[in-house]
Design a protein around this nucleic acid. Sequence first.
DNA 1: AATTGACTTGCTTGGAGCAAGCAAATATAA
DNA 2: TTATATTTGCTTGCTCCAAGCAAGTCAATT
Lengths: 204, 204
Amino acid sequence: MSELARKTHAERTDLSDRLMLDAAISMIVERGTDRTTLKEVGEHAGYSRGLAGYRFGSKAGLFEAIVRSVGEKWLAELKRVTQGKCGLAAINAAVDEHCRVCLEASDTVRAFYILWFESIGVQSPVKAVIHGIHERRRRDVIQWVEQSDYAGPATAAAIADQFNAAVLGIVYYWLANPDNRRSTIAQHNELKANMALYFAGDSA
Amino acid sequence: MSELARKTHAERTDLSDRLMLDAAISMIVERGTDRTTLKEVGEHAGYSRGLAGYRFGSKAGLFEAIVRSVGEKWLAELKRVTQGKCGLAAINAAVDEHCRVCLEASDTVRAFYILWFESIGVQSPVKAVIHGIHERRRRDVIQWVEQSDYAGPATAAAIADQFNAAVLGIVYYWLANPDNRRSTIAQHNELKANMALYFAGDSA
DNA sequence: AATTGACTTGCTTGGAGCAAGCAAATATAA
DNA sequence: TTATATTTGCTTGCTCCAAGCAAGTCAATT
């Protein structure tokens, strides 16, 4: 069915969408968002100059589409590995999964986080999507803490913020030093150890 | 001496440099780096279209100059407030100073961190400067830990990485939610509390 | 007086984005 | 089924504007 010939409209757009998103992800990882041009996204995907701009409306629209599609898969995966867990067990599972994905080092995730960080300075559609993802992550962590028997001094929200800040910081250094696998692993482990401190002497 | 008339060469460049850097910082905070143009930086500073490009060589060069100048002042300030301290005291002083600067919310610092985060996706001169700043921060924290009587299980490097990751994560959320002063304060406080956990039961 | 250095202006290049057009796919009618 | 109409995926030609370069002007230095 992947002949050059006969395709339904839906199949055509699905295909060109996928090809262009893949092309864009590669280009973002290789040369950054600045030097990723709509023209080349279209052409690398095997289409014309103009298709990426036409399909996604603008460069920001293209980036938004990437963040949306990757973000959804990512959140679903995190949900899966923490299913039925709470407290430190859920946190550990989430950190492990996160570390695994970083080490896997797919262009997809790298591009996702590059767009995440770059969205900070602009009033782009990407920023809104990221904000939503962040909020969902935050709520998840709060829930894990609240459903556990944690009874320490820090609020669940404070722990969640601390946790998410740490994850983001770790991601930053991972992006900056992609080849230092040892450090990536160590920082994830240290985060788990750090979170365990909250749950260590809390039975009082 | 700030007449329109007679200026020495050094005075002229110093002045135009400052004016253009200020203009650029405002524009970055207001509209993001993308929509900050060399043309408007020059014009907003009261010069011609072309001066910013001529002076800084390129847009990346302008951004590098901003990160350099802000970064130097910033590191000096951090050095000042932690002078003679070590261990948790130094960490607490650094966090307090960091929190203070965030709450002050000067365009300068905001632009600095925006450029910091955006440098992640590119192979820009900014990235190298940021990397240097990060390394110095890391060494500082390691030193603080090593010079204290800390004797817990985590290495000084691990604590430093954890600390810097947390700071960066907090900065991210501060940039994303600039008006939420309570959260900014809370996260800084939580970071101090978190770091205190390392030093709590370590006398063994 | 000669030269250096600050700053400006004119120009080229290239990407973003828009609109008009072409061709393949779908809907409608005989 | 076959013929016609319409929608929709995709392309091409265009305008606009920022980056960056080179040649020029004028003030400051020697």
